[in-house]
Amino acid sequence: MILAAGLGTRLKPFTDKHPKALAMVNGKSLLQRNVEYLQQFGITEVIVNVHHFADQITGAIKKNNGWGSTISISDETNEVLETGGGLQKAGWFFDDDFVLMNVDILTDLDLQVMIDQHKKNNALATLAVTERNTSRYFLFDRQQQLCGWRNIKTGEEKIMRNENDIQQKAFSGIHVIDPKIFSLIQQQGKFSMVDVYLSLCANHSIQYFDHTASKFIDVGKPESIAEAEKMFA
């Protein structure tokens, strides 16, 4: 699933008239790039959630025949549901372990290695992370298990399991998830996957996959478009 319903406020003025999913990097939209990225790992059935300028996204998918993939739409036109609510609404689509990713992420992370680790460890969810500076971090123990969350700007911290040796990792917006998570989610309506993971990590295996060595950029601001064009042809 590619999350493409956000308002893209950081990418103004482009998003005053377009969805961020259609922001162009070297002649290809973010959405096209991530559809083609998933294809590299044999993933050709994708669902995309839409809200902001939804008709432009559905139009681009139809015009380009899904760029070679079969793309379903999860319509959030009436209300954007955030990452957790958006996934929950699209839950009907999944019957096996699946990838969830933000549309404004570009990376060359080896997704097959991440999926293999997820399945080998029988995790409920595996989260792609890197060692980089950011304002918000997931917190993990030395067994790579999620135990909390920290916002270093506000000082807010949520510790769900007490551990003596905690490491903080920056989340990359890419998840591999076991569909049994849908039976465990207690939240309803509009909510974040961060809250889901924090509510489940005390009793379920939510792990990280560190891809610090790979290319990665969050194409969230106008200046990051130029940076992304240097990184991805």
Rank of each mutant, 00 (worst) to 15 (best):
H52A: 05
M231H: 12
V48N: 06
K153R: 11
D141V: 08
T77S: 09
N121A: 03
T44M: 04
D210F: 05
G59R: 05
F171V: 06
I177Q: 15
A54S: 05
Q167L: 09
D96Q: 15
I2N: 03
D210T: 09
P19F: 07
H18E: 12
N65T: 06
Q88T: 05
K169M: 15
M1T: 06
G42H: 12
A123I: 01
A21G: 03
W92C: 12
D97F: 02
F138E: 11
A60C: 02
Q168V: 07
K190P: 06
T212L: 07
T130I: 08
V25F: 05
K190R: 10
K28G: 11
N78W: 14
G42W: 10
S72F: 04
G27F: 13
V80I: 14
N26Q: 13
A125T: 06
N164K: 11
N151H: 04
E131M: 03
A60Q: 06
E157Q: 14
Q112F: 10
R161W: 01
Q207M: 11
D75N: 11
A123Y: 02
K221P: 01
K230C: 11
L198K: 07
P179V: 05
N26G: 14
P19G: 06
I177A: 15
H211F: 12
L146V: 10
N78V: 02
L106H: 09
H204Q: 13
S29R: 04
Q143E: 12
K180E: 13
N65D: 08
F209M: 12
N26L: 14
S205D: 12
I105D: 12
F209L: 07
H51R: 04
C201V: 00
S199E: 08
E156M: 01
K120R: 04
M114K: 01
E163N: 07
I71G: 14
I217N: 13
M1E: 09
R33P: 01
K221Y: 04
G85I: 00
I185E: 10
F98G: 03
A60W: 00
E156L: 07
L30T: 03
D195T: 01
M160A: 10
K230W: 06
S205A: 13
K20I: 10
V80T: 14
C201L: 03
L139D: 01
A4E: 13
Q56A: 04
D95A: 09
G173S: 07
G42I: 08
S172C: 15
A23P: 00
S135H: 10
